[in-house]
Amino acid sequence: MELIKELLDHINYVGSATLFVIGLYTVLTHSNLLKKVIGINIMETSIFLFFVSIGYISGGITPIIIPGSEDIIYVNPLPSTLILTGIVVALSITAYSLSLIMRLYKEYGTLDMDKIMELRSDGQDE
């Protein structure tokens, strides 16, 4: 019971760790190039979730100062702002990798990494 309670209390951390592993598994085991990019995106999302969960305080409110009220607990706004930057970075990486995938499809005629490696070992490059 103790364990289940612990897990439920930290459900955000457990969830983000699970998502991280799912993403990593997708990147490493799938040979489809698009699925690799999707895996990368899942990993990125898991870290965003983790970061935002660190800053969350239960019962806290949006960090906008209301004049005249003293005893209000605010949510830590810094992780959320950092994640905004993180999202931009993730977007640019996705865009660049998708453009590379388009080029690769034009050159090799397939999206399968294993088939591309086969074509390479047949010595059709250069």
Partner: peptide, 29 residues
Amino acid sequence: RVNFLASFRYLILNTLGSLSFFFGIALLY
């Protein structure tokens, strides 16, 4: 075509590296 392939593999592994580093930052934070 060799360059696109090399670049794609580099990008995927580089991103895995960056994300791993980012997770480390989150844990330290």
